[in-house]
Design a protein around this nucleic acid. Sequence first.
DNA 1: CGAAATCTTGAGTATAATCAAAAACGGTGG
DNA 2: CCACCGTTTTTGATTATACTCAAGATTTCG
Lengths: 248, 248
Amino acid sequence: MHSPFKLGYNPLIHKLGSIFTLTENERHALENLPMQVAVIKADQDIVREGDHPSRCCLILDGFACTYKVTAEGRRQIVAFSIPVDIADLQSLHLNVLDNSVATITACGVGFITHEALRDLCTSHPRIAAALWRDTLVDASIFREWMMNVARREGASRMAHVLCELLVRLRAVGLVEDHACDLPITQVEFADALGFTTVHVNRVLQQMRTDGLIELKGKRLFVPDWERLKEAGEFDPTYLHLDDEEAAA
Amino acid sequence: MHSPFKLGYNPLIHKLGSIFTLTENERHALENLPMQVAVIKADQDIVREGDHPSRCCLILDGFACTYKVTAEGRRQIVAFSIPVDIADLQSLHLNVLDNSVATITACGVGFITHEALRDLCTSHPRIAAALWRDTLVDASIFREWMMNVARREGASRMAHVLCELLVRLRAVGLVEDHACDLPITQVEFADALGFTTVHVNRVLQQMRTDGLIELKGKRLFVPDWERLKEAGEFDPTYLHLDDEEAAA
DNA sequence: CGAAATCTTGAGTATAATCAAAAACGGTGG
DNA sequence: CCACCGTTTTTGATTATACTCAAGATTTCG
């Protein structure tokens, strides 16, 4: 774990600063936002379905996921969280958590109390709007995933998530030369795509054979970005990034 | 079309009033919220993917749906909108629409400009929070649908959407004695569930045979609510209704 | 009443699931 | 540095859920 963020510096400043220019006041409020930092081991629940949390968790480092479980115990991952996502920002205005959040790798996590966030929103309406917007982008990603899971098959479905992860990781500087660390196991991909592990394995092999991806261990390399995008019918509009980030 | 709402009365007052008690000020602001009312025929797009809307649409009467289309032209309905839903509230903070909204039946629609909504949010923080919350509930429904589409099969998947529609319709007074109008065609259910029309038809027949539902024309009757809930593994927590609404 | 939309039925097929087991990998401790 | 153990990936054989294509019945609505 080597965080790209200086200790004692709230990465929300950078995140929100990329949406609009922060005033001195806003920056100051973010710098003083109390945040309790913890390191959580891999494969641990951070919060659980049914909880009534009094704080939100900001992923500072590592990969996490949001998931739900059916009555029969089948797990569905509904989102991946990477730095600098607030994995459960919805808990700010919903009493009960309707999903769990777990780490995939070891994670650095910053906990921010609802109280602190509410104060921040009350005194800084533009920050409130930006956080609201953030949850709207999450919802947009849910819509796209729903279409992915419901309407795309095999390689197309797999290619689509890979494209999304690549773009989102690039936006936070975690992609270099069309390659990145991708510590997501085939079991986890299966849980996210609505496939079985066996099927994920076969799809990935086919994609490797077709030269769409090179994926070994925890490292992904994309030889031909345009072809992968095409395979996954990937259009980044739904991520609502600014133009620079989306273009890359 | 027989609207349950008085003309010239903003139904948001009732909607938000059920979340928290409105102050005189807040109520006044909602009463004066400018809203352009229109009637839109069945099967018409209200807004389209790629639009940059300057207003939101509130469904006053009738059924609508939010949908996306894959590159190959396969449609996925990601949400049903009923009175009194704001079908595209996310456009308030996102520049581009990443989905279309269409009517299913003829609909009464109230258009509210972003400008008016922003003013409302600025001067009435509690209303802003309630609207934010509303979009968070939408997102919660997306998560549940994703699990439904990815992990439940046949009758279970179908039963789940039916349960959700029943509960949501009941919350706005459109269910009487476990029966309601349900003007959704098998084609539309197929588009929402990630099935084909043929499969929806067979699933519905099986469910009728099993005595789970009575569905003829545009009328749904549920003989045994507990059994339907069980069939659909339905737990209404994710709808984040208040206790009274959820209990019924 | 007639045309269009919706629903229903049948036969054959495909994508992905299931079950089971083996191989490869990665980290740990001796 | 290597042996070992648990996790992850891979392979094979069989099965099932749902799709496709095609056509006929029924309902709805102008």
